[in-house]
Design a protein around this nucleic acid. Structure first.
Lengths: 240, 240
DNA sequence: TCCCTGCAACTGTGATCACATATCGCAGCG
DNA sequence: CGCTGCGATATGTGATCACAGTTGCAGGGA
């Protein structure tokens, strides 16, 4: 029998074996849908049918059922009284509530990150900021890429706070807000606030480098607040 | 055909029809497990087998699979690399992190509640505090009931803040902390901190009545902090 | 006494099926 | 022209089955 089962034989050949798809299909569907939602690539109100998604992914209904159940538990999807499931439509009130929570939680994560961030982490954050800036410099910036880099920039900072439970909650918040980014994504006028986004990001970076938690937090607050104002002005939200 | 399907016929008889079990078995299993966990009636590290739970509940595996998937998404349960699922075992570090987050979130909810609480809500909160006090007066207080009343007291306050998204997050936090209440529950020495718990609850109530958000928040902070210290002293937690 | 081996029971995963219900479209009547 | 009623389609839910992987334990060898 090959060495895997035995205790101490370490052949160099083993390391090159690679891992055999240790991921369940449920997990994969879940992750894919999650990324889709967080990247703002699904429309608020859009309906998901288990069979349709399963067909599109070439699997049976089971993994999709599972993934949707998990996303619904995180409020990333919504099950209507009809028991059909759709991408939630945020009310203005709820959006503002989420923004308030984000200011607290992401503000705290940023402040803590300013204390704990390591030089290599700072380098990564700098690189992401540079990439964000570069993408803005393009004549025709790719909105999808912009959103992705922005997300990486924020979460790389939160990760530096070394508070995994906090980060999971923050991810949940982005997951709920994700779909409205869709509208933002399609509106080309977003450039208006983009310049200020760059400035706030720079402020966060400066705060981290100076280990000034309050400054970094203040810059983040500006970022979140102005971005939120932009969405609110778009009225992609339910009035309620 | 009875009136239900038609538009405008409002017979008094209809109202008495009652609703026919409009709840899925998945939903029921989910809710039951959730309550069990939040009430601290499952042990950290305890393993759950889908078939076993299904057998105990007299259903097939399906609803249990569904419920467990949802709870796992909320970190209320944990899927091991083996793909078996168990009640998570908190590390000290994670427990302290959760406490920090609770101080922020529940503190904010309490402060906002102080501004928005209505007289009838205040009455309910007073009643719950009275019940909590009364249960303490018993010679042999029922720990389970104590935990339940405490939870109702806190969440009735948070509900008064009228921030549903915030409340869902807080529920998620209680869900993660629930299992360690189990140890607390079994240790009879808990009386030590109970007196102080009563005092802090009184302080929260006073703050709400005076519409003094800062005072209510400070009292809540004392409650959470001292309760957390008690758990940490029990070392029911993983050292990491 | 300890460690290894091999078999049996058990577990989660994915697929498929049956069923009750909801939704949509169309015909028929007012 | 608009509303009502009915049939066809599609949807979520729950049950059952097959399978692969893991775990646990007993037996045999050193």
């Amino acid at each position: 029998m090959p060495a895997e089962a035995t205790t101490a034989i370490a052949s160099p050949a083993i390391a090159s074996l690679g891992k055999v798809d240790r991921e369940t299909m449920s997990g994969r569907v879940y992750r894919d849908l999650r990324n889709l939602i967080m990247a703002g690539q699904v429309c608020p109100g859009e309906r998901l049918s288990i069979r349709t998604v399963a067909g599109a992914l070439g699997t049976s209904m089971m993994p999709v059922r599972d993934a949707i159940a998990r996303l619904a538990a995180e409020q990333a999807l919504e099950v209507l009284p009809n028991r059909t499931v759709r991408v939630p439509i945020l009310t203005r009130r709820r959006f503002q509530e989420l923004r308030t929570i984000r200011l607290m939680l992401e503000g705290h994560a940023t402040a803590v990150a300013a204390e704990r961030v390591t030089p290599p982490a700072l380098d990564e954050i700098r690189a992401l900021h540079a990439a964000f800036t570069a993408e803005h410099a393009h004549a025709e910036p790719d909105a999808g890429r912009l959103i992705a880099i922005n997300k990486d920039f924020h979460f790389r900072i939160y990760e530096a706070a070394e508070m995994p439970a906090l980060m999971q909650i923050i991810e949940g918040l982005w997951l709920q807000i994700g779909p409205v980014l869709n509208f933002d994504l399609r509106s080309k006028s977003r450039r208006l606030s983009d310049r200020v986004a760059l400035r706030y990001h720079q402020g966060m970076l400066d705060g981290l480098e100076a280990r000034d938690g309050a400054a970094a937090r203040a810059a983040l607050a500006g970022d979140i607040t102005t971005a939120g104002d932009f969405i609110l002005a778009c009225d992609a939200l339910l009035d309620e």
